[in-house]
Nucleic acid binder design. Structure first.
Lengths: 207, 207
DNA sequence: CTATATAGCTACTGGCAAGTAGCAAAATAA
DNA sequence: TTATTTTGCTACTTGCCAGTAGCTATATAG
């Protein structure tokens, strides 16, 4: 009974700790995206959640760790969505559409994480940068494979699968630079336009 | 004679001063692109040209002015190239190809300036950011007009000219993020692929 | 040759922000 | 109640870097 109580309480403790880490990350990504990584002080991040700087230091060992987790998030979510779409039994065309739609959604919903990664990659340690670039490479690789599969089946007409994958990845990433809530266009509109545009990039002229 | 000598010498002085400003900007853009604006010290910039920090301060009034000029350069060059292409007597299709080719070249040649703008826009003063965003908007506007003209003439098949202009601008900008000298692909290869891809984005399916 | 302007340097200041030591208060346990 | 652990805070230190004051040397002028 004693042990069970203890276990229960340590488990909820962990959940609370995870929640706090998450909250810090959320606020930090927002401020880093708006004012830049270097120009944002941890005092400002702390003030936003109505705590003080040492609070942050009890959940993250330094400012760089915060940046690493922010940068990792966007690419991890995107890769997961891509893998999920590839796991579905569907044609390359359908899979590609689903990837653009799902990743587009993730980029819209997590634009702060994405733009921080784009802008602040230079502020990562060499090791962190290497690790995250490997994740990104994985994404490009899987996308390249899909494009090549679609070319073999005759569904896609592309000159160079690897570079096409880069254009498509760039197009998706680009959304984070200009989409903003309450802007001229809705997220849905933009995502559908992205699907349409990617489709035109890969589709044969006469089809 | 005295006056003529004086004029001549002040003129060459100005040219030398302009050259030094230019040189500072070049080195600064390289270091800002590699290590980030905030992480680069003016002592480092100075060391690269084998002078000291006060040297820089006699050509630029502060670090922010340096950033502003770097950010302005890429967009000014691109807009100039776009205007030049639009001034040629040619069809929308030909004009668009020429724009992608010329701007692609500029982005490859000035990738440091472009990526600094992309990454460090947040570090501009409000006023500088506003001014540069206006320049960028001008570019998008002229490109949108071209796309609309091509649509009217039946050469282009696009859903929404303004958003298509954004995708195309993004595709071009994206080059600066991954092209690097001595990389897998040559500049020419990438630029031709960009032309091909943009062409597919705007062309009717049955052409 | 003397006077003046120009150019660049050495050597500083002042402020800011990352990271820390050690305390106080609350929760939990026994 | 008393002991212990957890959690967060106040109040520092430390180093860095933008920006400056004021000197020295060199070029130009008369």
């Amino acid at each position: 009974m004693v042990t069970s109580t203890r276990r229960k309480s340590t488990s909820i403790r962990k959940e609370i700790a995870a929640f706090k880490r998450q909250r810090i990350l959320e606020v930090a990504s927002e401020l880093f995206a708006r004012h830049g990584y270097e120009s944002t002080t941890l005092d400002e991040v702390a003030a936003r959640i109505e705590v003080t700087k040492p609070f942050i230091y009890s959940y993250y060992s330094n400012k760089g760790e915060l940046l690493r987790e922010i940068c990792e998030r966007g690419i991890r979510l995107s890769t997961a969505a891509l893998e999920a779409a590839l796991a579905e039994p569907a044609s390359p065309t359908e899979q590609l559409h689903e990837i653009v739609r799902a990743v587009g959604r993730i980029i819209v919903d997590n634009r702060d994480y994405i733009s921080v990664y784009q802008a602040e990659e230079k502020n990562l340690t060499t090791e962190d940068a290497r690790k995250i670039r490997a994740l990104r490479h994985e994404f490009d690789l899987r996308l390249t494979e899909l494009l090549e599969k679609g070319r073999s089946s005759g569904e896609f007409d592309i000159q160079h699968a690897q570079r096409s994958a880069l254009w498509i990845g760039g197009l998706l990433t680009w959304i984070a630079s200009w989409y903003h809530e309450g802007g001229k266009w809705s997220a849905e509109e933009i995502i559908e336009d992205a699907v349409y545009t990617v489709n035109k990039i890969v589709m044969p002229r006469r089809g």
